[in-house]
Amino acid sequence: MNRATILATALAATVVASPALAADAKRSTFGKMPDGRPVAAVTLTNGRGVSATVIALGASLQALWMPDKAGKREDVQIGYDTLDGYLAKPEFFGATVGRVANRIAKGRFTFDGRTYTTPVNNGPNSLHGGTKGFDKVLWEVTDVKSGPVASVTLRYVSPDGDMGYPGTLTTYATYSLDEQNQLKIEYRATTDRPTVVNISNHAYWNLAGVGSPRGAMGHVVTIPADRYTPTDDTSIPLGRNVSVAGTVFDFRKPTTIGNRVRDGRDPQIVYGRGYDHNWVIGDAVTPTEHLMARVVEPVSGRGYELWSNQPGLQFYSGNFFDGTVVGKKGHIYRMGDAIVMEPQLFPDAPNQPRFPSVRLDPGQTYRNTMTYKLFTQR
């Protein structure tokens, strides 16, 4: 199934509703940081039953409500109901992750002849920017708009040396929602010194609804990639991309996640306790967005297509939830309760010269855009 066919199928299955005149953006307070600073929240709502709440801690997608095929709305983002959870046990729920998303081997890389280190927080490696990445800082809300497209823009200035990274990096995160049920996330960043950047969003999706006993392993996934990136037993890439043909990583046709996620015959599945790998959609960042994945929960009919300008897609099947995280409405999150689809550059790219570069120089603008085209099929 090619990309055009997938798109046509999704559009044909979309429930058509009469749009409202304008989408709305409302600001509120989600709580206070330990030092007393208020944490802003902005809820974007359209006329078709979709609403998204973004909080300033981690520039995070805290909730996303969408209707099923019977019109029943559910929150499809797992996370916490209150700020206390995000402070006590952060799990990257819906968060902006960076400066460098994904893993850096041993928290060390060489850049322009100098070795840099960033704190390790995932076994021997650094994950999502280190011990205090972009997900754990309070962003500033700089703009809130209602209109044909409702949006919120947040900013964070990461100082030179933050988590060991060179250069002062100024990053903007914009979330927008329109009347076509498109939720868009755009990241832009500039620097005053050469540095490395790879920013993404870590939304945890359960299209059956938060707390549903169905979890996410019944989701049907399509990924238009003929290669993926194998890793060692600490999830660091081996430096090559291999064909998905004949493997459990072949999602070129719609495939139920649970059918193969526990296939212990593949050592890659054993290493990650499921899927936690990079799919190669392209070889470079592109000027426009292209299809990254299509996800459907068959019982509710909820689904989305994910489009982005990035070459890589990190697909994580929620393998490390062990029943110790109590989330929204008191639900205990278990292995496989949600999935993550992160458009980005490739993991450990600062140490992998064959991978697309994560370098950003002064005068350039880093840009990662991702659009979730939400739909409900009957």
Results as ranks from 00 to 15, higher is better:
290 H>K: 15
295 V>Q: 01
264 G>V: 13
265 R>C: 12
302 R>E: 02
253 K>I: 08
279 W>M: 05
257 I>H: 02
285 V>N: 02
252 R>L: 11
275 Y>I: 10
257 I>Y: 00
283 D>C: 06
281 I>Q: 09
303 G>D: 06
294 R>H: 09
267 P>Y: 11
277 H>N: 10
298 P>R: 00
301 G>T: 04
280 V>E: 13
273 R>D: 11
259 N>Y: 04
298 P>I: 00
301 G>W: 00
268 Q>K: 12
256 T>R: 09
309 N>T: 04
304 Y>H: 08
282 G>R: 12
284 A>C: 10
286 T>Q: 15
280 V>N: 10
292 M>N: 03
269 I>P: 02
254 P>A: 08
270 V>A: 14
280 V>M: 14
292 M>G: 02
286 T>H: 09
290 H>T: 15
263 D>N: 14
309 N>E: 13
253 K>E: 14
295 V>L: 12
276 D>H: 08
292 M>S: 05
256 T>P: 04
299 V>R: 00
295 V>M: 06
274 G>C: 03
268 Q>W: 05
276 D>G: 08
304 Y>E: 01
278 N>Q: 15
293 A>V: 12
291 L>K: 01
252 R>A: 07
268 Q>R: 11
267 P>G: 14
262 R>I: 06
264 G>H: 07
264 G>F: 07
278 N>S: 15
259 N>K: 14
274 G>M: 03
265 R>I: 07
257 I>L: 04
261 V>G: 03
258 G>A: 04
276 D>T: 13
252 R>G: 12
263 D>F: 11
280 V>D: 08
305 E>H: 04
263 D>A: 09
295 V>N: 01
270 V>E: 08
298 P>E: 00
260 R>F: 05
266 D>V: 10
295 V>K: 00
291 L>R: 02
305 E>L: 07
277 H>Q: 12
260 R>A: 06
271 Y>N: 14
273 R>S: 10
288 T>Q: 15
285 V>I: 11
292 M>K: 07
259 N>F: 08
253 K>Y: 05
309 N>M: 08
308 S>Y: 03
286 T>P: 06
291 L>Q: 01
285 V>A: 11
279 W>P: 03
260 R>Y: 15
281 I>K: 02
266 D>L: 11
262 R>L: 13
303 G>E: 01
306 L>H: 03
274 G>N: 07
259 N>I: 05
286 T>W: 09
295 V>E: 03
257 I>T: 02
291 L>G: 01
282 G>P: 07
263 D>Y: 13
278 N>Y: 12
301 G>N: 05
283 D>R: 13
288 T>K: 11
272 G>C: 12
294 R>I: 05
292 M>P: 03
281 I>E: 01
289 E>L: 14
